[in-house]
């Protein structure tokens, strides 16, 4: 029944939490499938539930209801330790504020996930070097975060996300702290990784960033508003002008 190319499958995902005495219904029945080598952007305003969705996809958070499978493995029934392992092996996180450890140099920052999968010292070094080369930072691997520019820091973070060869690269507003030019550099990097076969899920509220993806999922009030190829999303028209298809169909 399962299609091998389906990486993640969310069915009827609900998530509520309590803020003070209020109950916030952050996710209200999400259905979502992402296949191997897709490049998906999840868009939405703050409070739309996109961050919660990202946390659920990244196994940082658990749904209250519904099932979530990664590569056919149900995560909803897993223990904390098993979830940690999924995060370690299947997910590569990229955060808005990089989250590099200030006292470690780039290389050691990149090695971090491998420490928790108990990879030997030499292999760890080698994989971390390779990852840094992939993001074009081979020359700066012995620099500490405070010696790196914002764009470089984010590249280190991407290298760290990639080092364990995860199924999904999960990026949360990866360009949120960067200027336009640097952002473009990071988005080019993502494009390159996508072309190399990496599955990417991008969470953003910026239309121009979302338009780098091939598929855009829009969220509002904890529900999926639309889920279409990027070219059919209104954002595309906003950035690139009306697409050829849209002109033809007169949308």
């Amino acid at each position: 029944m399962t299609d091998n190319s389906v990486l993640i499958r969310l069915q009827n995902i609900h998530r509520t939490y309590k803020v003070g005495s209020d109950t916030v219904h952050a996710l209200r029945g999400i259905h979502l499938q992402v296949r191997q080598n897709e490049y998906v952007a999840i868009m939405g305003h703050s409070g739309s539930g996109k961050s919660t969705l990202m946390n659920v996809i990244g196994c940082l958070d658990r749904a209250d209801q519904g099932t979530y499978e990664i590569r056919g493995i149900k995560t909803t029934v897993m223990s904390g330790a098993a979830l940690a392992r999924i995060r370690n092996e299947q997910i590569g996180f990229v955060f808005q504020s990089y989250e590099l450890l200030p006292r470690l140099n780039a290389l050691k920052n990149v090695e971090l996930p491998l420490i928790y999968s108990n990879v030997g010292f030499l292999t760890r070094r080698k994989l971390a070097r390779e990852a840094l080369e992939r993001v074009g930072l081979a020359a700066r691997m012995h620099h500490r975060p405070n010696q790196l520019s914002g764009g470089e820091k984010q590249r280190v973070a991407v290298a760290r996300a990639l080092v364990a060869k995860p199924s999904i690269l999960l990026a949360d507003e990866p360009t949120g702290n960067l200027d336009t030019q640097t952002s473009a550099g990071i988005m080019d990097l993502f494009e390159k990784l996508y072309e190399q076969g990496q599955t990417i899920i991008l969470v953003t509220h910026e239309a121009d960033i979302a338009c780098h993806a091939r598929r855009i999922v829009r969220m509002q009030d904890g529900q999926i508003l639309s889920d279409v190829p990027a070219r059919q999303d209104p954002a595309w028209a906003l950035i690139h002008g009306p697409s050829a298809e849209a002109k033809e169909t007169g949308v």
Binding site: G58, L60, A84, R87, N88, E99, L112, P113, Y116, A164
Partner: peptide, 16 residues
């Protein structure tokens, strides 16, 4: 705290 959060995000178990 943030470091701990990050370590957990990249796969550190609670026991680690």
């Amino acid at each position: 705290t943030r470091e701990i959060g990050l370590r957990k995000a990249v796969g550190a178990r609670a026991s680690a």
